Simulated assay, not measured.
Amino acid sequence: MSETNSGNPYYHGPISDHFDGTRFYNPDGVEPGGFRSLFKWQFSGERSRWPKSVASPFPPAKPARKIDGDELRVTMVGHASVLIQVAGLNILTDPVWSKRASPFTFAGPKRVVPPGIGFDDLPPIDLVLVTHNHYDHLDLATLKRLQRKHAPRIVTPLGNDAIIRRVLPNSRITIMDWGDGVAISRDVRLEAEPCHHWSARGMRDRRMALWAAFVFSTPAGKIYHVGDTGYHAGINYRAAREKHGGFRLAILPFGAYEPRWFMKGQHQNPEEAVKGMRLCNAAYVAGHHFGTFQLTDEAIDAPVAALDAALAAEGVAPERFRALRAGEVFDVPVA
């Protein structure tokens, strides 16, 4: 396969079925809307008003140092930031403790719910998973804090390492393409899988770093983590089931989805998330990506109400798909 070096500041590598030599893409997928569509959305006047602050119904969690055996515990920090404890490992996904999901400290989407775990109450962090480079998922300020206190291994898709190394040149980073696998410990393996999304940190780097979902194979069962995705006709969910058989737990996004004409390709809605649960054969779901930063038009309580309706329509017991609030702890039953 040929390799190019054509204006991508993050990644140079061989052309593939999801990389054209400069930009990554979703095979047979939908490109994100351009600037004209963005401006149309931003000036539509249909955005719901969120409260400036909300108290979680759960107190801040104080996690145990380690979980072993067949136990699997998930604790919600907020938005897409989740602490996974399994097989003696403490894993953080897309950690954001900053007040804004933004390149600026003075503007951009502001956190309305405090983190569900105080930063100083974190157990020793072994692994940080960064699924892609949007600011609500890749927060350099938080990664710097984690590096100083925990020096964790960071796993991220192609190209995102270049962004992280600009501020953490000595961090331990494992870079993965779709289909790659790596040993995390003696009995835990991690594989990168496709999801339907995109990436950008600014105006001129759209789709120049890869996005991915991940699967952990552990003694306590398989965990399917999706940081952000469009439903994509269920293609990636079916592929995950065909490859992995099923999951004790899927961690799925179900918020930030309106207006559908603009968001459908990149953010699934609650109905689609429930369909995805069934397609990938997940026994339980920890739902995330809602109720923390206002990124889109829907009201703050709309995703959970829509999720309740979707679960009822699909005949799925609500305890199987938990919309996790900040500080909530989910001890996942043995499937």
Score class of each variant (00 low, 15 high):
1 M>P: 09
5 N>L: 11
6 S>V: 10
7 G>F: 04
16 S>C: 00
19 F>Y: 15
22 T>H: 12
27 P>N: 10
29 G>I: 01
32 P>K: 01
33 G>M: 07
35 F>Q: 11
37 S>D: 15
40 K>H: 12
42 Q>C: 08
48 S>K: 14
57 P>F: 12
58 F>I: 11
58 F>V: 10
59 P>R: 13
60 P>Y: 08
63 P>H: 09
65 R>I: 12
70 D>H: 13
72 L>C: 10
73 R>F: 08
77 V>G: 05
77 V>T: 08
86 V>F: 04
87 A>W: 01
92 L>A: 03
97 W>K: 06
98 S>K: 09
112 V>W: 03
114 P>S: 14
114 P>L: 13
125 I>Y: 06
126 D>L: 05
131 T>F: 02
132 H>A: 00
133 N>W: 03
144 K>Y: 07
144 K>N: 10
146 L>M: 06
146 L>S: 04
151 A>L: 10
153 R>S: 08
164 I>L: 07
166 R>I: 05
170 N>G: 13
182 V>E: 09
183 A>S: 14
194 P>M: 02
195 C>T: 15
195 C>W: 00
198 W>H: 12
201 R>L: 13
203 M>H: 12
210 L>Q: 10
214 F>D: 01
215 V>Q: 04
216 F>R: 03
221 G>I: 05
223 I>L: 04
225 H>D: 07
226 V>W: 02
228 D>A: 12
230 G>V: 02
234 G>Y: 05
242 E>W: 08
244 H>C: 05
246 G>N: 05
249 L>D: 01
254 F>M: 11
258 E>H: 10
260 R>G: 07
270 P>N: 10
285 V>R: 03
290 F>H: 14
291 G>A: 13
300 I>R: 10
302 A>W: 08
303 P>F: 04
310 A>R: 03
314 E>V: 08
320 R>G: 03
321 F>Q: 02
324 L>C: 08
333 P>K: 06
334 V>F: 14
334 V>K: 12
335 A>S: 14
